[in-house]
Design a binder for these strands. Structure first.
Lengths: 198, 198
DNA sequence: GTATTTCTAGAACGATATTCTAGAATAGTT
DNA sequence: AACTATTCTAGAATATCGTTCTAGAAATAC
């Protein structure tokens, strides 16, 4: 027997799933409340009850997706036993995730830019910051041994994942000049060169 | 005496300037036609006459800004006499431009993502592609001498400017942990390591 | 001097995000 | 079991948005 809680979370998930496919098919700014309503069979009131407003729907989906992505990256880091495996694994795992979840990745890039989630800015920064702390913690031993170059914390974000993000945006935009598998190697190699002491 | 052409281009520029400041202050998706109208003192009809639709206004501004940015990068490349100076100059010049034009840079990042300029997608790709061809032409001699690593063309975009873009987004978002001058050195060094043959 | 093009103006229209009121279904309490 | 409170859904109503449309003014071309 379905409790109210069950049907409620089902509806919640249906709204988020409808939003993701709507964004994938028609783009973010054409994903209207009534479009979500049509695809999820939820009423306007139901959507606003669960998420507050349109931005709230996007934010909830945003966090859901990042939670999954970060879990993959975390697992990759944890099973790495050398600095090289860890750094290259981070890049490759991220790009593998993008290839496996193109709709989710596109959504992330569409939503993270701009002012769409401006009112959730602090919450998102905190959420991402917590994960970057984990990455920093993993790197610390290798920083001490001199295997990885010591930089201000903010710089690792740009140097480690900047190239992968730039490529992913391009790949998701339809410019798939090379398979993701080949791109992974090229980008991972470049990042590995960049992160070692000169 | 002001001709019709003069007042027309003045109005055009006023609309674009109003759009830029509106986006800087309130964000892209809150920059409405009536907001632009209010700041530029242009009528609805005038805006639509000059730019077709809201997307057209954004596209015109987008191209204007990139034209300026590319001009800086082109000048930087042309006066470089070594591979190292050229590559590092590209990164530093770009970040200098971002620091000098934060409103323009923010606009670029807000507008290039998502489906906002979807109907101008091909024109934008062609515009950017032409500049990347120039960069490739500059690199060619150094690729032949082995000073720069040989990669598929698409990879240079990700590896050369990916870190700078990632940092710029963060810096523009208000997380200015370090001065741009210091960031330039760190990122330029990293990119220079990444782009050399291993 | 007339015709044509360019440009501006603003009312009108359909669609949008959001709010609001009302009620149904479930959970909690005694 | 009965009553209350809470959660959830429903959909009409509202204000605002992007866009279209018609009309006319101003400059230019012939």
């Amino acid at each position: 027997m379905a409790t109210q809680q069950d049907t409620s979370t089902e509806r919640r998930q249906a709204i988020l799933a409808a939003t993701l496919t709507a964004v994938a098919e028609r783009g973010l700014h054409k994903t209207t409340i009534s479009e979500i309503q049509r695809r999820s069979a939820a009423s306007v009131g139901s959507i606003y009850h669960h998420f507050g407003d349109r931005e709230g729907v996007l934010y909830a989906l945003y966090i859901d997706i990042f939670t999954d992505c970060f879990a993959q990256l975390r697992a990759s880091l944890q099973q790495a036993t050398t600095a090289r495996d860890g750094i290259r694994g981070l890049v490759c795992t991220y790009l593998t995730w993008v290839e496996a979840h193109p709709e989710q990745a596109s959504f992330i890039y569409e939503a993270s830019q701009g002012d769409l989630l401006r009112s959730y800015r602090d919450a998102i920064l905190q959420f991402k910051g917590a994960f970057y702390q984990e990455v920093m913690a993993w790197m610390r031993p290798y920083l001490q041994t001199g295997e990885l170059i010591i930089l201000p914390p903010w710089a690792y974000d740009a140097i480690l994942l900047g190239p992968a993000h730039e490529f992913a945006r391009r790949w998701l935009g339809g410019l798939q000049e090379l398979t993701m598998a080949e791109a992974q190697i090229i980008i991972a190699d470049a990042v590995w060169r960049a992160i070692q002491p000169g």
